[in-house]
Write a protein that binds this DNA or RNA. Structure first.
Lengths: 249, 249
DNA sequence: ATATATTCTGCGTTTTATTGCAATTATTTG
DNA sequence: CAAATAATTGCAATAAAACGCAGAATATAT
């Protein structure tokens, strides 16, 4: 039996059953388990299935599965969100960008709080909708596929007419000297407009993003009023940010 | 039973019931509670659910968690979408509203087609993002929690400046005499603006929605150029629409 | 056609992952 | 506070994966 045949067999079986056990196929195709293991590894490497302990499962037929992708360093993001949640108060207006840390923050919002959130992030908007007393205003515009946020002239125009109490500035790169920077120019423009539209700026950032610089500068580091990381507030690596006048949580 | 299968089972159960008891799953999947506890911990750590004492609760509203099968009258919607998909051509600009039939249409769009879609629907926007050559422009505004679409002045303002080739008008109520109607005033305003912004109007509608009237009238029935239902084009119940000048697919 | 190189396969061996159990420690609830 | 219910921890049995190797099969070059 040729390798190709086995591969075809495996994939067709998988498309029907959605799962297969390594031992079953090895038995059925009368080859050693090692061979099947190698087959599965190959198919896994080219993304045609997902190898798991004991066999393989079909890749989700659902084209939206990528939205469920695992969140990098999730526990620390929860930690950050916990610290920052106290910044959200009744009857205030907020701006919030995308990024998983901000999404985490949203899911920690007290259920019945009444306030207003402006956001360019589709995901953030979706999550905010679950709160009965939160008014969600989506900033319109061209949607950037990677970040799933709206950008461009329309968005900037709306932001220029806006003034909120606080914004939660998502994932960016922070450097005490260079300031806040980003890779994508559309996002840079958007974040500049967001900062301009906010009385105060909070940034929820994993410490790995500190002391890193990207291509385009968004603003000086002291544009941020409150910096929230997973580190304790007195951690030495936060000293230089503190000396720039940032409030550390 | 593979670990992966348990995880899927847990997540799907959770997406339906929003909460699960540890003992219930352990019992149902016939593994020890310890195993399920470990599963929940893993899923919790990657942020897919929230582990609580005694079980787990769903993380947040997940717009894609609904099961394809559970959509009301799904097969007919696919049928409608299939008929309508030919209306989408290269390099055109479209407006599309929400509604599951329209979402179905989106998922049938040829993968590499290049065109522009304007939409007030978060779900539609999310789905459109998977197409590399489609430009998605989200119409901003206050998000209506039930319909998950943006409404209000901002949206209307943008629409007033817009002119697209064709719009796909989602779920509404159609009556040959009374015209197009809706229950929710915000949506009425929005749809009027959408019709005004479109050179041609297509409506994808299940036949049960025909000959039904809602509180507010959106427009005359002949505002619609093309009507797509799951019925064959020569079905008698479509006659009166045909006589009003609508093109039936 | 023959020789050579490359890939494929199966078999031990070692390493790692998964699972259930028991004892201990936490949480919840009346 | 006390009883009941869960969670945690360490441990052992089992199953699976990874690794290296050698022989077989296949492809390639001369």
């Amino acid at each position: 039996m040729l390798k190709e045949e086995r591969h075809r067999h495996i994939l067709s079986e998988l498309s029907i059953r959605n799962r297969i056990l390594l031992t079953d196929i090895a038995d059925k195709l009368e080859v050693s388990e090692d061979t099947i293991r190698r087959d599965l590894k190959e198919l896994h490497d080219v993304g045609k299935l997902k190898k798991v302990h004991g066999g393989a499962v079909a890749k989700s037929f659902n084209p939206f599965s990528f939205h469920q992708e695992e969140i990098y360093d999730h526990p620390n993001k929860v930690l950050i969100a916990r610290k920052a949640i106290h910044l959200i108060k009744e009857n205030q207006a907020y701006l919030i960008t995308g990024g998983t840390t901000n999404l985490e923050l949203i899911s920690l919002i007290p259920p019945d709080i009444a306030c207003t959130f402006f956001t360019p992030s589709l995901q953030a908007a979706m999550r905010l909708l679950q709160f009965p007393n939160i008014e969600t205003i989506l900033i319109g515009g061209k949607v950037s596929p990677d970040a799933q946020i709206t950008t461009g002239g329309e968005a900037l125009k709306l932001l220029s007419r806006l003034r909120v109490d606080l914004c939660f500035l998502g994932t960016g790169h922070l450097d005490a000297e260079f300031g806040i920077s980003e890779f994508d120019w559309d996002v840079v423009e958007l974040k500049q407009a967001i900062i301009a539209a906010s009385r105060k700026v909070a940034s929820l950032t994993l410490s790995v993003k500190l002391n890193s610089i990207q291509r385009y500068k968004i603003a000086e580091i002291n544009s941020i009023d409150t910096l929230v990381t997973e580190l304790p507030a007195n951690h030495e690596s936060l000293e230089k940010f503190k000396s720039k006048g940032l409030h550390i949580l």
